[in-house]
Amino acid sequence: MSPSEPLRRACHPTMSADLGQTATQENTMKNTDIKRLLYTHLLCIFSIILSIFIPSFFLENFSILETHLTWLCICSVLVTAVNLVSYLVVKPNASTKRSSLSYKVTRFLKCCIYFLMSCFVFHVIFVLYGAPLIELVLETFLFAVILSTFTTIPCLCLLGPNIKAWLRVFSRNGVTSIWENSLQITTISSFVGTWFGAFPIPLDWERPWQISYILFSGMAHLLYAWSDLWLRGWPCYFATLDILEQKATYIQEQLTGTQEEFLCRFHKDCAEMYMV
């Protein structure tokens, strides 16, 4: 499975000069998208880090291990807020058609219901995985909430309450844009992180963080952050690739065009590269 398939397809450069121009335009569009994506993810990571440090200013006796429930709440609220804000600001799939207010309200309500439903479904899944049914029920539910924050809310923001679109995105080759690609990667790595997070539970080190829910969420965080970083790395990689290939076209031009023109363009390009 190659998550970068659409990216590669979109950015494959053409050797002809005319098509090169259009490709550059596409590239600039994509570059802005990549930058937006980068900022969104940076913001998300930043909010998670903030959720660790900020509460200690307001709350007494705050620490991740002891008052983990508060921390989970704060973290999920912050991440939700950041996701919503970035969605409203960036609007990755802003449709041109105007929709009525009532439509918007029903859509919002639907989103809320979907979120709650996902929380309950996750809770049921955790219980099916072996979480105790009655004791620690609050912990389990909060963990379900935070996992839904990491997975359901971005989906709701990007795709709306549309199950078919979700299933499309999460099946092979169903991704159509870079936003959906990032969504796929972050969500799947959150799940995988949660899954891996269960591994240290049976170890007999008798550490406080070994209690399942903290570990689950901790690992989910880590994986989420990691996937973000990874995502940030990929677009940069592609951007540099594009620029290098543009350079190749310039070298071709050099064979035909004048030297000064080439040098001038090359310097400009280098400057662009530095900016990126």
């Binding site: 995985y129 072996g130 049976p202 170890l203 007999d204």
Partner: peptide
């Protein structure tokens, strides 16, 4: 790992 052997049932349930 000895703990994983002791708790192998958890691995299989998981």
């Amino acid at each position: 790992a000895s703990s994983f052997i002791e708790e192998e049932h958890q691995t299989w349930y998981f």
